[in-house]
Amino acid sequence: MSNALNKKRNFIERSILSALAFLKDATLSEEYANRKGFLQSLDPRLKTVSFLAFLVTAISLKSAVLIGSLYGFCFILAIFSRIPVRHFLIRTLLFIPLFSLFMVLPTLFSIVTPGEPVCSFHVLGLNGIITRPGLDGAVLFVVRIATSVSLVVLLSLTTRHSELLKVLRVLGVPQLFVLTVSMCFRYLYLFATMVENIFTAIKSRVGVVSHHRHGQNVVAWNLANTWNRTTQMSEEVYMAMLSRGYTGEPRLLKVFHATLKDWVWLCCAVIICAGLFYRGQIL
């Protein structure tokens, strides 16, 4: 098949891949969250609070070395939590940090960030001068992004998604909002499967969509159809909620219990954050 045809039908395959990627991510996260590791054994509330503290520390510090040490700490936590190293590195170093690295590359040079030169080179008749503030700024930026991403990834991989959403309520997020988030999350699986089915059906029946305008119509038609199905579904969902005893006040089925280990972990997290802030002040 020609490249042109491959390109033209890509939107069908990419849509299937988007839906499958969502389902794969969600399933894999649940699998890791159910493993018997260190972070999985912690109370979701205190774990979330401690990770938020780490996150605020990571975006507040101004030293790449200190933020990098926090990334190293995440790496150790990932190992003790039985998260495969390869998966952790791919999730935390590719995508956002790699995009950030490419984005920040021009700031290395004196033309964008003037300052003390670190090295210079000559390519195709052009002089490139990398400056100290440019290099330090770029390293700090990328390390900060990688560390922030690793903290969020670690939290989401080691906590069951349903529990993570319930933690929102414990943290004081209004009930209407938490209820909406929890219900929305459940329907995402259904919708992702729906998207996969729609585009698999298009692929099996149509195969190749010859023109991008036709493809746009196909996508819009199916989006409109998905919306119609969702509105019909909301009525059925409400009836199902009523039949299960819903009175307008949602209840948390699982009650969290914090143990001494959880409080010790929280104290350690606070001490680590305070220590990093203190080192950051004197560096």
Binding site: T180, V181, M183, C184, L190, F191, V219, N222, L223, M233
Partner: peptide
Amino acid sequence: PYLAIGAAFSFVIMMFNVP
């Protein structure tokens, strides 16, 4: 549920790749 499903719909829109 209408609001929740509306939220899920706004998430799912991003899965539809447009040529």
